[in-house]
């Protein structure tokens, strides 16, 4: 289990990296390496060129402006998990990160790497989808942005071109006092989720649900925003019966199947977790400690 032969490049700037991407064939970007390196060691991939982004200092960092938090693509998961700013304004992201891998993998793994790897079971992918993130993508013609809804082109395939790279993720700030919950079911602590659920609830002054964002991870080939469930909730007072109806929408999902986990299990689990996450998010929105 040793990596195959490749040429190694470690550009110092985004421009240099984009230049390499434009010039070279069969490239792989190396971010935190927590997915690419196992694939190299197992010889599942044979890139001619590995472009290491770890020496591009401008790619890491967390900054807030009026309406968003911008997280550089090479920001380590550990630093996002530790960020007081993120904890304050995007607590769902902090909660999601507690489920991501282990201390050693979070120390190295990056948000950009996770989003580009686009494992359907990855917590950061589900959280970004739920938080209506915008992806900044650098290419030969400069920087473009893509909504997280449009980012997955298909199973583990982001909508970026071979000469492009993700440089940052921008998350709009939800209203303060919103309710949130990130729940998942994994076989062991730190494993990829079989199913994850991200829920964000904003209550209006009359206690009705003003905004609902619900995302399922691990169930479909890409993270699923449950728009039908969201529509069911908005305008109504939260309650167990309503949440059960929202959870029922999971029954119709065409869920992933694999050797260990059948589709019916994922659907059933999605419904159970969604009802639980909605209840937690509601309690938090109402200021009840959970």
């Amino acid at each position: 289990m040793k990596p195959p032969v490749f040429a190694y490049h470690d550009p110092r700037s985004v421009e240099e990296a984009v230049g390499l991407l434009g010039r070279l064939e069969n490239t792989r970007l190396l971010a935190g390496g927590q997915s690419l390196m196992p694939m190299l060691n197992m010889r599942f991939v044979f890139p001619d060129h590995v472009i290491d982004l770890n020496r591009i200092e401008t790619l890491a960092g967390i900054v807030q402006d009026a309406e968003t938090i911008r997280i550089g693509a090479m920001t380590r998961q550990r630093d996002i998990a530790d960020s007081a700013l993120v904890r304050d304004r995007l607590p769902l992201l902090t909660e999601a990160l507690a489920h991501v891998g282990h201390r050693q993998t979070r120390n190295r793994g990056t948000i950009g790497g996770s989003l580009c790897h686009l494992d359907p079971a990855a917590e950061l992918v589900a959280a970004a989808a739920n938080l209506d993130a915008t992806i900044e993508i650098a290419g030969p013609d400069g920087v473009r942005t893509l909504s997280m809804a449009a980012f997955p082109r298909g199973f583990m395939t982001p909508a970026i071109e071979p000469d492009e790279m993700v440089t940052a993720v921008r998350m709009p700030l939800p209203q303060r006092g919103h309710g949130f919950s990130f729940m998942e079911f994994a076989r062991r602590h730190g494993d990829f989720a079989i199913v994850s659920v991200a829920v964000l609830l904003v209550l209006a002054p009359d206690r009705r649900i003003a905004r609902a964002s619900i995302t399922l991870g691990g169930v479909g080939a890409v993270p699923l925003r449950m728009v039908e469930a969201e529509a069911l909730l908005v305008g109504h007072e939260p309650g167990a019966a309503l949440f059960e109806r929202a959870a029922e929408t999971c029954r119709a999902i065409d869920a992933l199947e694999d050797a260990q986990v059948p589709g019916w299990y994922r659907r059933q689990l999605a419904g159970v977790l969604m009802a639980r996450a909605l209840a937690t998010a509601r309690a938090r929105a109402e200021g009840v400690s959970t």
Binding site: M1, G33, Q34, M37, N41, R78, Q104, T105, N107, R108
Partner: peptide, 22 residues
């Protein structure tokens, strides 16, 4: 492949998998 943790070392003080670094 980055699961067992036996190769963990400290890189600039942080615990990381040495099998997943070049």
């Amino acid at each position: 492949h980055g699961v067992c943790g036996a190769c963990t070392i400290l890189l600039d003080g942080r615990a990381v998998r040495a099998c997943l670094l070049l």
